[in-house]
Design a protein around this nucleic acid. Sequence first.
DNA 1: TAAAAGATCCCCT
DNA 2: GGGGATCTTTTAT
Length: 208
Amino acid sequence: MAAIGNALARDASVLPLDFYQRPATELAPALLNKLLVTTDGRAGRIVEVEAYTDSGDPASHSHRGPTLRNATMFGPPGHLYVYLSYGIHWCANVVCGQEGQGTAVLIRALEPVAGLERMREARGKARSDLDLCRGPARLAQALGISGEDDGTDLLRGPIRLLGDGCPPPPHPVSSPRIGITRATELPWRWYVPGNPHVSRLSGTSRPR
DNA sequence: TAAAAGATCCCCT
DNA sequence: GGGGATCTTTTAT
């Protein structure tokens, strides 16, 4: 599409490896406004993220050490960790830090930028374009991300992360993480203030 | 072998 | 705004 075509032509920078080689709490706000792009032309701007740090974080999948499911999370940074949530929903994370550390950033919401027709097809239940990518499982469905994409190299594709030439917002907002039951006091969720595609504007995590 | 929990979404009121 | 769906992964017995 023209939108993504122009963005690629203006600044097609794939984010380099060292962009990912830092703590999740640093990478998370830096990911805001970056572009998640698929080879078939779907793209979204990241507007909401959450940091999950190493085994010291009781809410992180890496808390109890490596398992079959979270193996990608303990792999090299710059890769996509995709897992199945509640037995139904796929969610996508950006692996960061150092290999073996087990830290990643959950992508919670995107603003659709290109390939909206394909997103609408993939998200038949979305009642409006605002619901296409608002929520971690929704954006995965909209972009066609599933378990087959676990371990994808974000520098090579088929799913890639682009710099876009657009810096993070000058004043990203942080709040507690959503949907977890442990370490709910840590303000490790960041979002672009005022963006309607953010899943929840005032964030408080809900106990189950 | 069994049981419980889970980084959610959707529909209904 | 609230509750049910749904099933994989992990941990306990």
